[in-house]
Design a protein around this nucleic acid. Sequence first.
DNA 1: CTCCTACCTGCGAATCATTCGCAAGTAGGT
DNA 2: ACCTACTTGCGAATGATTCGCAGGTAGGAG
Lengths: 171, 171
Amino acid sequence: MKIGARETERRMERITSAVKAAGVKLTIQRLEIFRELAASADHPSAEAVFEALHARMPTVSLDTVYRTLWLLTDLGLVHTLGPRHESVRFDPKLERHHHFVCLRCGLVRDFESAELDALRVPASAARFGRVEATHVEVRGVCSGCARKQGRKSGGRNDKEPKGGKGSNEHE
Amino acid sequence: MKIGARETERRMERITSAVKAAGVKLTIQRLEIFRELAASADHPSAEAVFEALHARMPTVSLDTVYRTLWLLTDLGLVHTLGPRHESVRFDPKLERHHHFVCLRCGLVRDFESAELDALRVPASAARFGRVEATHVEVRGVCSGCARKQGRKSGGRNDKEPKGGKGSNEHE
DNA sequence: CTCCTACCTGCGAATCATTCGCAAGTAGGT
DNA sequence: ACCTACTTGCGAATGATTCGCAGGTAGGAG
Ligand SMILES: [Mn+2]
Ligand SMILES: [Mn+2]
Ligand SMILES: [Zn+2]
Ligand SMILES: [Zn+2]
């Protein structure tokens, strides 16, 4: 699904200038990947971008698509759907509640809010289908991570080191 | 991180009775996995549950932990953090917006809402750290999936068949 | 209480998405 | 036109999750 040419153009402009400003080389594959992504409204996966591109450019590799998408993500030019954690996380609390998610370490904490629960689903969302639930995700940096801050730059790999799976047991 | 014994007990009760009602065998490993999960407040991964359990029960396999957690999920006794899609999805729209996510096929659509944007972050969430953004996810079944409905039961594998990566191109 | 059997479990191999390592290719400054 | 650091395309490596299968057991029948 594609968006209007006007908006696509605006995005391409923003992306190319930002990428150029970052001192990154503008290769044909990058330009095409930008174009493909800038025109889409369906939040494509790397694979989807790759497939779409493959018709026009049979030589691009899936790996390059991944590298380019992460490049854009690191530059803040695209977002990913929901902060990705390394693996699925399970929640035994069935009562209606919401989450605070630490972008650094993946810590997740519950919180309740009568105000949020009272919210009505906007018609702009309801038009897409039958709504079953709404969930608010507050993203930020947990106090634990804020303390031991500073170090690294800000790229995508600034997560807690791979070590013990039992990390994010802050607090 | 564990929650109070009172609440843990309540959850164990709910889980065991529901599982029994579903005509599923209550094995020791299942009971222990239930116990471990019911007591946790940190949204553990299967691996985390496995690790924690490994101390008490050195013989349980990670695979059984996975199978049990998905069993609970299918019975609606636990939830997973954010509807899992098969892979990362990228979003080129930087303007503040929210998402409607189809639980069946993974379709994701943008929607805006002044009302939602106006929301203040509740203190109950802000206490966990520095908030950077809040995002509302409305989950439901898209009109496309609603149309071709009925068929299958309701388990975790009722997603669109694996086929072409370019699915969820509904509408 | 014992017996049976459909349902479980532990394992090692198989999948899948994503990432690495490296040799060959090229954007872009000089 | 010429360098060379940054990029690519691959095929192999990873890491999370799932499968296939052979042996084990919950729990209902007798
Ligand atoms: Mn929760
Ligand atoms: Mn979006
Ligand atoms: Zn953190
Ligand atoms: Zn759908």
